[in-house]
Design a protein around this nucleic acid. Structure first.
Lengths: 342, 342
DNA sequence: GCCCTGCTTGAAACCGCTTTGAACGCTCAG
DNA sequence: CTGAGCGTTCAAAGCGGTTTCAAGCAGGGC
């Protein structure tokens, strides 16, 4: 069922039918009702391909992920971010196009998406320090919003990010308030800007209280359970072990917990742990009562915000770049307590 | 730069240029070279929207995921499956369209994708027992491949699945061989067909050796760390605790391990654990040496296979449905050992 | 009675490509 | 010398919508 057929059934021209369906005002109310009813009855949906060609808009948004190489890590945050963004697209009649590409192919992918006219804009993921993608997307003239800021890039562009520095600052302060002074950081890979900012929040909180950050209590690695376990184990086995940890993710935190328990210690009593919780739907921090005390910020919500921002940008490309810095909540769980008396 | 402009520059008709670029044989070799050179020089890319309208093919594949409701769990397997499928699409010039929808909206989503002509086929995820989607997709005439079989549906359709029954049968047999007889099952939600088949493999292996499956040693829940911990804790606190566990996922297994260690026991010595390992890139089972003994089958590979199967089906829709049952490897890690002497 | 307006509707061009059917220039067999 | 056949090229008709521009018609002011 296409427009022409529908118009014939109604004894109207395709023009009028098109206008009625798209809500143009110059259609007689009675005619419009008749058309809408018929469209519904015949389950008519305009052909996306034709709309796209005629209007020159793709009505689609691209998400480009690094991760094509066989063993590269797909970001665990991916699924929930996509779910959030997808809600917004669906509500606005946009399609979501996904490309999983190798790092080298990424620039070319953007260029193709643009010149093929496959999307109206893109969301940039896994932003790195000094990320060249920002500049090249600006050059391309393809609207985009990045998830995370690119440290070291001083250009006007739109982004959605979490105040990672503040989150880790608050987490560290909270542990200091509980009397801890040997506080360890189990950080993500510091090639990523967000990890750097987390570290700076941690370091600043310590030095504000006159505590020197101990390099032996700072680690940086991929945010997996295994690396959390390894890092925490090494630290706990030192002569002057930490009494508290700030961990970069739910998975790292689980590794830290295991290291603690493996030494016959109890998390929350002997050793405190605060994690950063992205609220991933398959990695919940407990059911009603949180297991970990955590700085929490929903990735899904970030996905929604980024998507909405991008659609606004597409609707009006000349609008000034917008930024949204999300604050993480500090929620109390069972993994923290006062520093044990010596 | 579009086809017409390029043709004008070359003093040729769009017809000839189009044919040359698409490799049709009836173009003079010299002309073709001239055209290819010019296309390259001007960085010409045919407009995707126009190609799609003209050819009637979408050159795109849809992936439809349930999970739109705020708190619904996004399948953790999602990201890696997509990464695998994406490789195949990219290599074949297809785009990947993602829809995250609420359960109720799913049927309508398929119908829309079809009538809008947005995709040439779809991959069906999270297949349930007696899944009505199979029938409705067959009715729609939209080519599709499902990831997992729909238990209870006896229709001809294409799928890619893991031999879950055999995997759990082998895992259980392996534990029996090690002398275990109190073997527990920490299963996923049994509304999903794959969980049912896993259970049947487990039960059959036991009864083949004359061991009755003990209902108190079988649990079924979402595959999270927390639920693995809870289920294993309860079982270990019984008067006749299990000496071995078969767990449905990496995350469940981590929960089981925690329950074991919380009781001062050592995994691999006092209590054995076998997990099912999907080889998720962000949830690796150890680095070089596997932590868990596991039945292993790569979700990423399944994504590749399903995607390829779908493209084949799209190329020739009249081909008979194809099925691919992947066998899981049984790999030895550090989490299993002989049953402790009484 | 005439003309201008406002409200509806329609014809046709257009988006950028593919593809069908026709035409052109040559060679070569009859 | 004619006509069939081949290799190349092109004009034009789609694909299924949107959008511009024109036109039909009724009502109202003069």
């Amino acid at each position: 069922m296409n427009l022409k057929e529908l118009a014939q059934k109604l004894n109207l021209s395709p023009t009028t039918v098109s206008r009625a369906l798209n809500g143009y005002p110059e259609v007689n109310a009675a005619t419009r009702d008749r058309i809408l009813a018929a469209a519904k009855r015949h389950n008519y949906r305009p052909n996306t391909r034709a709309i796209r060609l005629a209007t020159g808009r793709a009505m689609a948004v691209g998400h480009v992920f690094p991760g094509a190489t066989k063993n590269e890590i797909m970001n665990p945050v991916f699924a929930d971010f996509i779910a959030g963004a997808g809600e917004v697209y669906a509500a606005n009649g946009y399609d979501m196009l996904l490309s999983v590409v190798s790092d080298e192919a990424e620039a070319q992918t953007y260029r193709d998406l643009k010149s093929r006219g496959a999307v109206d804009g893109v969301i940039v993921h896994a932003v790195r320090t000094n990320d060249e993608r920002i500049q090249s997307l600006l050059d391309l003239g393809l609207p985009f919003v990045s998830h995370g800021r690119a440290t070291g890039v001083d250009l006007p562009y739109s982004w959605v990010d979490v105040n990672n520095r503040r989150a880790f600052l608050r987490a560290t302060e909270f542990l200091l308030d509980l009397g801890h002074s040997r506080i360890a950081l189990v950080n993500g890979l510091e090639g990523m800007g967000f990890a750097l900012r987390r570290r700076s929040g941690y370091v600043d909180a310590l030095s504000a209280r006159g505590v020197d950050a101990d390099p032996a209590l700072m680690s940086s690695d991929a945010m997996t359970e295994h690396s959390g376990f390894t890092a925490a184990s090494a630290m706990l086995d030192r002569p002057d072990p930490p009494t508290a940890f700030v961990a970069a993710s739910m998975l790292s935190g689980m590794g830290v917990r295991r290291a603690i328990e493996a030494r016959g210690l109890k998390m929350g009593r002997d050793v405190s742990v605060i994690i950063f919780d992205d609220e991933l739907s398959y990695l919940r921090n407990g059911e009603d009562l949180p297991i970990f005390t955590a700085t929490r910020s929903s990735v899904r919500e970030a996905g929604r915000l980024a998507a909405q921002m991008l659609l606004d940008l597409i609707a009006d490309p000349d609008t000034a770049p917008r930024n949204k810095l999300l604050e993480a909540d500090l929620i109390l769980g069972q993994s923290t307590g006062p520093a044990p008396r010596k």
